[in-house]
Design a protein around this nucleic acid. Structure first.
Lengths: 250, 250
DNA sequence: ACCTGAACACCGTTCAAGT
DNA sequence: ACCTGAACACCGTTCAAGT
């Protein structure tokens, strides 16, 4: 599977190409932010970039492939945020909370990227994306899932969590993921939803996590620990840590 | 706001128009099922229908509006399924389970409609849909949410559930909804997700619901009741009840 | 080997003409 | 008042020519 046949002369070209691809993706994001999803056309992307149409199609096999590429970008950023969140001191349940918070913060501070992730889930996009790019996305999703699984495994080893019958590390990771994805997807792009618009996002998010983890009997239970305080603590750390880290030139 | 100005002479025309719209939506679904999302074009829809392009645009202001209309259809079907699920006898937690199961079954038996719902969440679709249709969708979502809230309220009245500090009926309904939406969205369209593909959908779904409700201390707890049996019971009822109910001519 | 942009083709949308 | 479908316009995609 790994290609050792490739020699190194073209190494630099490859790097330059990848850099240009990154610039195109940043440009696409800016267009999306300013003009909405209807405002992103290949013509506009070409006009605002320094390359020609043909070259853009050299990077992305279709407009949909561009969206999948943006979703890969989105997952990479998420992975960075997860790794930072794991550095925050605290017991295992607080670390789970940190992951949820990092995810939620991401969906709020970078709505465009999050919406790209949502869009890239759509069959219309999947159908017309390149297999290579879809594989890349899957690989990143696996890395994110692995982080969740490690946390769960560590909590079991440490004794704050015990698996009951019918539970598995994979299943627990999935349930967490589903909860986080669903809540963020419902909260962010649909502020017009009359009923849920009166809910405060952050306490609701915290409630969801607490219910799941209490249901698992993951210690310490929310009745024995002030997770609202944990949430605040983690949030201030995440907020001060990543002010102008990299990438986004707003 | 309510228009009483309209008189009744054109009542029949309106009904006929709505019937035709329904036929167009069924046709669109068939095209999606057979040829995928990339295969649905306004040309094809016109060719396979009995009306002209102009008439189709008389119904839907854009292709995106058509997707929103399909999502409205999807929500109507869901509403029906929810109402049926509520008829199933059982205590309040079993009724919650019945709703989750109905939703899950829907996403599995009608993947196309479910994917329309997902697609219609996308900003590209929202941006180009008619405000009237978006309002219709929101209204249906409110009806669905109301069902969830009623169930929660009833459980509180009955004594099997007590609201703790920081909990509200709205917040609990939201958390359930997020869980269900996230889990179904992650399960159905992404069977290619290496990690989660080895999970069995139904036990995982049940686990998620049990964790949330146990976390709420909603009686009877999963340790005191065989919810696997409940799940099976509810599923057989749902499966036998709705074989060829209406609409879908497969 | 890679880039270019004019040309192409498809498809969403409109509108003058018809009934 | 509503339907029609040819015409239009936009935009995604390609490819012969250039470097």
């Amino acid at each position: 599977m790994t290609a050792k046949i490739t020699v190194e002369p073209s190494q630099k070209r490859q790097q330059a190409k990848q850099l240009r691809e990154q610039q195109l993706l940043i440009l696409a994001q800016q267009i999306l932010q300013q003009d909405g999803f209807a405002g992103l056309t290949m013509d506009r992307l070409t006009a605002l970039s320094s390359v020609s149409k043909g070259t853009i199609y050299n990077h992305f096999c279709s407009k949909e492939d561009l969206f999948t590429a943006l979703s890969v970008d989105s997952l990479q950023r998420q992975l960075q945020l997860f790794q930072r969140a794991l550095q925050i001191p605290g017991h295992s349940r607080e670390q789970v909370l940190a992951l949820h918070l990092a995810y939620h913060r991401f969906s709020m501070t970078e709505p465009t990227l999050f919406l790209c992730l949502l869009t890239a889930t759509t069959p219309a996009v999947v159908e017309k994306s390149s297999p290579a790019r879809l594989a890349l996305r899957q690989q990143l999703e696996l890395q994110l899932a692995a982080i969740c699984q490690q946390l769960i495994t560590a909590a079991i080893a440490e004794g704050s969590l015990q698996l009951a019958a019918g539970q598995s590390v994979d299943a627990l990771a999935f349930v967490q993921w589903a909860q986080a994805f669903g809540a963020n997807a419902l909260l962010k792009p649909t502020q017009q939803l009359g009923l849920f618009s009166q809910l405060q996002p952050q306490p609701t998010m915290l409630l969801g996590v607490n219910l799941l983890l209490d249901g698992l009997n993951w210690k310490p239970l929310s009745s024995d620990w002030d997770y609202h305080a944990s949430w605040q603590r983690i949030m201030t750390i995440l907020a001060t840590e990543a002010p102008g880290a990299d990438g986004q030139l707003n």
